[in-house]
Nucleic acid binder design. Structure first.
Length: 483
RNA sequence: GGCCCCAUGGUCAAGUGGUUAAGACGGCGCCCUCUCACGGCGCAAUCAGCGGUUCGAAUCCGCUUGGGGUCACCA
């Protein structure tokens, strides 16, 4: 039997990383076993419909690399894959249940249900008022055109146990199960009902979803049983949590949501995180490989993923670790790949194309996100009357006096030099040697004079290479004049 | 509040009766070094508590505590 999993998002226009992580695991569960990954759009809530939101889902899946085998855009033999196009098929299933005495029409008004809740101490469900209406009453209500919903008859006693692949056996008392609504007044199915019908008719074998569904799963199973359908394998995932601070300034941990900052996939991308790094990181939230490896490509995850590595406890989303994973992916890039990402920032910083190779080498170990390039290279365009104290550096044995002397000696040397890395470095070392001082005594002031800032991505030779011979000498002479 | 789930350092986590309780992020220190990184080395930091079971518990059981989830004509 081939494994079939599905990702069933609602088109809200926003792909939360929690949803993406669920999609990723669904993809991995299927692909690791050579199975099929299905995309289904759950758009039954007409009030929440957002224009273009479905496209956001396609785009996100594509950027993330989670390509589905069946879906609204590419078809498949179990279509349609958009719930709103399947609307006509749900009600007959519910009516079948009514005929078999497993479901019933409920004519209660919303007002009645609300008052039911208001009068209760705690939170209680429906009082099953319409469960045993007589045939005459039903007939009369129907003839009077009173709107109704269809509810499932839950067993009144006993308990329901189901097995989850990661949480094991879970048992619920049946009396706590509400007579859930299957079909709404408007004739549309509820999410839970449509889900079961769709999963079954689409041949889904493994239901992978967040653990917030743990407590509604018995209801799903009772539905499968009512129809006599085979119950799928359940794989519930630990929740992704976020840290935030409440009104009293206390740190609280709760299900990751918008209040925790950038939690949308696109937000993260805009902040400079790589899709593959995000995928890599969220794969590690709630799952651990058999060895201690942490950096994976999607293909490698498919190969290494194993359901037994999924943990049960919630995981807090850690931006620091995400940043580290991102940096690791950057370091592993080829120069060509690095350039395609860095190019926009190079253009902004005013980088000469002849420096691309050098920059790849300099920047790869120095940046966590590509967006940091702008700041790292700002010295190329910006140069002014920086504080002369920058020339003083205790460890490098550099002082204002020594700096003045070193620049004076370095200028003529630099002037008739072939402008390449080896030459510059060697010349500076030779100069230091001839003056019987440490390398740093000459290199420090030269670098500071050229860059105008104390922190640069590279040493004096690299900085001057990025600036070019003319600009470098111009700056150094100017700095010398200020001393 | 009822029900369900969870519980190893600040965070992610390995561990399935006998280990000096891995590893990673972050933090701190040292080395390398013309700055910053990278890299290398090292340090601090964890089995929530209490009872059992056992020759022996992070590992099994119970209770307590703590955390989370869920209780819609939303998905």
């Amino acid at each position: 039997m081939t494994i079939r999993t599905r990702f069933a998002p609602s088109p809200t226009g926003f792909m939360h990383v929690g949803n993406l992580r669920t999609a990723l695991y669904e993809y991995l569960v299927a692909k690791h076993a050579g199975g099929t990954f299905v995309l289904r759009i759950e758009d039954t809530d007409r009030e929440r419909y957002v224009e273009g939101a479905t496209q956001v889902i396609y785009d996100t899946m594509k950027i993330a690399g989670l390509e589905h085998d069946e879906g609204p855009d590419i078809g498949g033999e179990f279509g349609p894959y958009v719930q709103s196009e399947r609307l006509s098929m749900y009600k007959p299933y519910a009516e079948q249940l009514i005929n078999e005495g497993k479901a019933y029409r409920c004519f209660c008004t919303k007002e009645r249900l609300e008052s039911l809740r208001e009068n209760a101490d705690g939170v209680v469900g429906y009082d099953r008022h319409c469960r045993d209406l007589s045939a005459e009453e039903i007939e009369a209500n129907l003839n009077a055109g009173i709107p109704y919903v269809i509810r499932q008859k839950m067993p009144l006693d006993g308990e329901t146990t189901y097995h989850d692949f990661v949480y094991g056996d879970i048992t619920f008392p049946n009396k706590d199960l509400d007579d859930q609504i299957l079909i709404k007044t408007d004739g549309f199915p509820t999410y839970n009902f449509a889900n079961v019908i769709d999963d079954h008719t689409m041949g889904i074998t493994h239901v992978v979803r967040g653990s917030e569904y743990l407590s509604s799963t018995p209801k799903y199973n009772l539905l499968y049983e009512a129809f006599g359908w085979e119950i799928p394998t359940y794989i519930h995932l630990p929740l992704i949590m976020g840290k935030s601070v409440d009104e009293e300034g206390k740190e609280v941990i709760s299900k990751l949501s918008k209040r925790h900052g950038s939690t949308g996939f696109i937000d993260l991308i805009n902040e400079g995180y790589l899709p593959e790094a995000i995928i890599n990181y969220i794969a590690l939230l709630g799952w651990a490989p058999k060895d201690t490896r942490e950096i994976f490509s999607l293909e490698e995850l498919v190969k290494e993923f194993d359901v037994s590595g999924i943990s049960k406890s919630p995981a807090v989303f850690d931006y620091d670790k995400l940043a580290w994973v991102n940096a690791e992916h950057i370091k592993a890039m080829s120069d060509e790949e690095f350039l395609t990402h860095a190019k926009p920032f190079y253009d902004e910083a005013g980088v000469d194309p002849s420096c691309y190779a050098l920059l790849a080498e300099l920047l790869k170990p120095r940046i966590t996100k590509f967006t940091e390039i702008t700041e790292k290279l700002s010295f190329i365009k910006n140069y002014g009357d920086f504080e002369l104290e920058l020339f003083e550096h205790k460890k490098s044995k550099s002082t204002l006096e020594s700096s003045k002397e070193m620049l004076e000696k370095a200028i003529p040397v630099l002037e008739d030099l072939d402008w390449d890395r080896e030459a510059i470095t060697e010349a500076m070392k030779t100069l230091a040697e001839s003056l019987e001082v440490k390398n740093s005594v000459v290199m420090w002031p030269v670098r500071i004079a050229a860059a105008g800032v104390s922190v640069t991505p590279g040493g004096c030779a690299e900085v001057m290479l990025l600036l070019g011979k003319e600009e470098s000498l111009k700056r150094i002479k100017y700095a010398y004049s200020r001393l």
